[in-house]
Write a protein that binds this DNA or RNA. Structure first.
Lengths: 153, 153
DNA sequence: AAATTTACGTCAGTCATATTGACTTAATTC
DNA sequence: GAATTAAGTCAATATGACTGACGTAAATTT
């Protein structure tokens, strides 16, 4: 039925990722770096394996991007206290600042998109987006995003 | 403010494009082919130049993908009647069928995502997505998507 | 204590999609 | 006739992903 929503989502997502892209380009980083930075920022001390699981990419794909972020002083690796095989990931101060800047751009766009919509629209959009996700993945993603509202699943 | 929406949108979009990806893989096509096919299907007889404008990619990027679609009998090129320089693009019967299949998958997912939401939610989502798009681009995109509802702006 | 598994990293090669810049051909417009 | 436009092409490059294989150290299981 809703044919136009396909296209609106396509263009909306394009602009949504476009804001960070401009900033990242100055650092010679791409979207892959953004994703890594974002999820490390949101999950300080995350294991490499778990990050791979979230991003659903291979170790090799992550490798290069992560190395560049570490070399640039954006992300820091610390040995696990319990398990010394682990290289737990944290953002540095610089990394934290960059991550906040990027998130801010996207939050601003989301806020602007909600302006003028009826009360409760944010929750409707939240619910909509959750239900766009494969049902099996929703529980895991809900834990990850720590959504501020009770979402009936 | 809404931090979780960033991540929900990320995962939602991933699954949204995931459905077509599986089908396209059987044809040895990728997402680039899908985008071209989609907009040709929706705008039969579109000029190459206009398609480039919609997708915002370069002629060279389009070139390879378009050639593969033409070779596979998915898209057809016809000389413009008024202007013989033009190679107007149309889907073939096969292309039309494939495009419908792919759109259907995405429509189904959108419909499922709207289930259980209050009346009027589809319009709220539509408005939200439109407002996620850069303001300057909205008018052009509205013409393109031919949205079934009057969108205030 | 030995064997297995896990966490992480790396080497090598490949593919898809995009880019920039330069150039050509044919047709249309001024 | 000159300039512009529509489309295509050549060449080189970059990003971000993949597969497959292998290595090392640490933890866990047997």
């Amino acid at each position: 039925m809703p044919y136009d929503l396909i296209e609106l989502l396509f263009f909306a997502y394009k602009d949504f990722t476009g804001d960070p892209d401009e900033v990242l380009a100055k650092f010679e980083f791409g979207r892959a770096h953004h994703r890594v930075l974002h999820f490390v920022e949101r999950n300080p001390g995350i294991m490499v394996t778990d990050l791979l699981g979230i991003l659903r990419i291979t170790k090799q794909s992550l490798g290069r991007v992560l190395k560049q972020l570490v070399d640039a002083g954006i992300i820091e690796q610390r040995e696990g206290m319990n398990d010394r095989r682990q290289r737990l990931l944290y953002t540095t101060d610089r990394g934290h600042t960059l991550a906040e800047n990027l998130a801010h751009l996207q939050q601003k766009r989301l806020e602007r998109a909600l302006i003028g919509l009826p009360d409760g629209s944010e929750d409707i959009v939240r619910q909509f987006l959750l239900q766009m996700i494969d049902p099996e993945a929703r529980v895991d993603i809900l834990k990850l995003v720590r959504s501020p509202f009770p979402l009936k699943d």
